[in-house]
């Protein structure tokens, strides 16, 4: 077993586990707990570098074999999947019923559902669909001592005990490992169009019903928006965008532009209140950090990520908050 693939900040674990069912996962975690070993949980690794380096790192638990769809009930607009299922695999299955889990990630072929939730992955379409946790309705989680505990359920409205499934979102595997999650779904949009628009439009765009808004600097510098929904509605909003010198871009170009590169260990991620920092977001973030940003991506409603100029460090991508 090549443990180097689980290397983090120069730390290589002494063991790895690759469970394909919840019971095996739970047993592995329980044994690690008894031997006081520390664990890093891996999905596709697209967000593994976010946050601090682990203080200790004995075991890598790779969840990619804990995958597959447990149940999809199209008539209920909900599904239950194993945590290691990739975002792309789930999307393919749901699309057969005309449905989707409305969370966009940078690398859906690699990113897992569990990792996307656990790392509260920023999605450009948070502007419209809000936080990833708002599309999670239940989970089966393995706690640090190997206990398997469920929370939530498979219904879309629920206040039956604590909402631990949502709590686990954004905790990066430090409270629990998501073995299975139940998700709320939506119908696939009839039409989706993306545009690059004049940066001066930023203020005005607040008043349009957009799916996503992304500001970037660097070689792709620009203001990018996406409109999605009913074809006739998308058509009208697109016409309104024409006022801002909108040029339509293909979905591939959109994907390449709006996601900060996933292998960037030198990214700094910053949270800012929606719409607050206007067109100067990248400069503002950079100023607060005390150096110029070489490339920055800002998702309205999510977070900004920037790569400081001249950075060659391989340290973990840091996080900071500009304002509560």
């Amino acid at each position: 077993m090549d443990l180097a693939i689980y290397q983090l900040e120069g730390m290589v674990p002494s063991r790895s586990q690759r469970p394909s069912d919840t019971a095996t996962l739970a047993r592995g975690i329980g044994e690690a707990n008894e031997t006081n070993s520390s664990i890093v949980v891996w999905g596709g690794g697209t967000r593994i570098g976010v946050g601090n380096a682990p203080a200790r790192y004995d075991i890598a638990i790779d969840l990619r074999d804990l995958s597959g769809i447990v149940e999809h009930s199209p008539a209920d607009l909900v599904c239950t999947v194993r945590g290691g299922t990739t975002v792309a695999a789930l999307a393919a299955e749901l699309a057969r019923a005309g449905q989707r889990w409305p969370v966009d990630v940078a690398d859906p072929e690699r990113a897992t559902i569990g990792g996307t939730i656990a790392s509260a992955a920023p999605s450009p379409s948070r502007l419209r669909h809000q936080h990833v946790r708002d599309w999670v309705i239940g989970c089966t989680a393995v706690l640090g001592d190997g206990t398997v505990a469920r929370a939530g359920g498979r219904v879309v409205k629920n206040v039956t005990g604590y909402d631990l499934a949502r709590l686990y979102s954004g905790t990066f595997g430090t409270l629990a490992v998501l073995a299975e999650v139940s998700l709320k779904l939506s119908a696939i949009d009839e039409a989706v169009r993306a545009f690059r628009v004049d940066e001066s439009a930023y203020e005005d765009l607040r008043h349009l019903p957009l799916d996503s808004l992304v500001l970037t600097t660097g070689h792709t510098r620009g203001l990018y928006v996406r409109v999605a929904g009913l074809a006739a509605a998308v058509e009208r909003v697109s016409r309104e965008l024409a006022r801002y010198h909108a040029t339509e871009i293909a979905s591939v170009a959109w994907d390449q532009t709006v996601h900060p590169s996933t292998d960037a260990a030198d990214l700094t991620r910053a949270s800012v209140p929606p719409w607050r920092e206007r067109g100067s977001i990248a400069q503002t973030v950079a100023r607060r950090l005390g150096h110029a940003a070489q490339r920055a991506t800002y998702h309205a409603g999510a977070e900004g990520a920037l790569r400081p100029e001249g950075s060659a460090r391989t340290g973990p991508s840091s996080r900071l908050a500009l304002e509560r």
Binding site: Y162, P273, A321
Partner: peptide, 22 residues
């Protein structure tokens, strides 16, 4: 104590979804 924030995904745990409904 204050939990959560106007800016999303602040460093640390976001206990808001635990507190809501508790």
């Amino acid at each position: 104590a204050v939990f959560g924030g106007v800016a999303p995904d602040l460093p640390g745990y976001d206990c808001v979804p635990l507190i809501v409904g508790s």
